[in-house]
């Protein structure tokens, strides 16, 4: 048999064979509309949320938390509306994960107040005594590095100008350092005094966690409202 005595031809044949499946299942889909639908409801991450997402990546949170709700009855009951392709348009990389040592986080945004997240990140066992999540209190002791934030959003093509990035950072800092910030007590408790007036890595991570699934929840709310209008309208006709 010829090919078994011709290494170069053998290698070429192998490459052709592996590229068939590769092309059909991964390259072709990149150019199909079904893998990248767009929804005006899904907004890119703000500068601070993006920095929080990068801390989530750095700490490998995706090793224990998934970010995809599957279309299964018990899963929707546990986490909320199942995940749709358009939700991930701004996710580079995706963070779907492969193991749920902790719960799925795709719908965690808005589920708990900021204060809950500060307390939980600082000491998970203080909220769930049997939790095996590592404590991340040290994130509150690290000032958020925003030196590359503009470059990051530019690479990702979010379309913010440098001023907008600075405004977003300043606005979020104002929010969490304001005297009337709802999570002020717990934030001050977990944050060292010298960092209380600035943004920490924990602030950014909380911002990111509160973003997860928020757009979808807004979409659901508006749909429900539209449906309600319709039924009210119909009863008026009747």
């Amino acid at each position: 048999m010829g090919v078994y005595s011709k290494p170069a031809l053998f290698a070429l044949l192998s490459v052709v064979l592996i590229l068939v499946g590769t092309f059909v299942t991964t390259i072709l889909p990149i150019y199909l509309p079904t893998t990248q639908p767009v929804s005006s409801y899904i907004k890119p991450y703000t500068a601070v949320e993006l920095e929080g997402r990068d801390i989530y990546i750095r700490e490998g949170c995706n090793n224990c938390h998934t970010q995809t709700v599957r279309p299964l009855r018990t899963e929707v009951a546990r986490y909320g509306e199942y995940s749709k392709p358009e939700e991930f348009a701004y996710d580079r990389p995706h963070l779907w994960g492969s193991r749920r040592t902790g719960p799925d986080l795709a719908r965690v945004g808005g589920k708990y107040p900021d204060s809950w997240h500060y307390q939980h990140l600082y000491d998970p066992a203080s909220i769930s005594p049997v939790s095996n999540m590592p404590a991340y209190g040290w994130l509150a002791g690290r000032r958020l590095d925003t030196g590359y934030t503009f470059r990051k959003v530019s690479v990702l093509g979010y379309g913010y100008t440098r001023q907008e990035v600075e405004q977003q950072i300043a606005a979020y800092m104002e929010r969490v350092t304001a005297p009337d910030y709802a999570a002020r007590d717990v934030r001050n408790r977990v944050t060292p005094p010298e960092l209380r007036d600035t943004l920490t890595e924990m602030d950014a991570l909380v911002a990111y966690l509160q973003k997860l699934g928020r757009d979808v929840k807004e979409l659901e709310k508006s749909r429900r409202a539209a449906m309600l209008d319709k039924t009210i309208g119909m009863s008026e006709v009747r």
Binding site: T25, I30, T35, F88, R92, H94, K152
Partner: peptide, 23 residues
Amino acid sequence: VPVNLFKSYPIYAGVNDANVQWW
């Protein structure tokens, strides 16, 4: 696409990134 020496973002987004990753 590199951001700096220690950080980069994949060229694929969302569903495609997941699909390429698990391929």
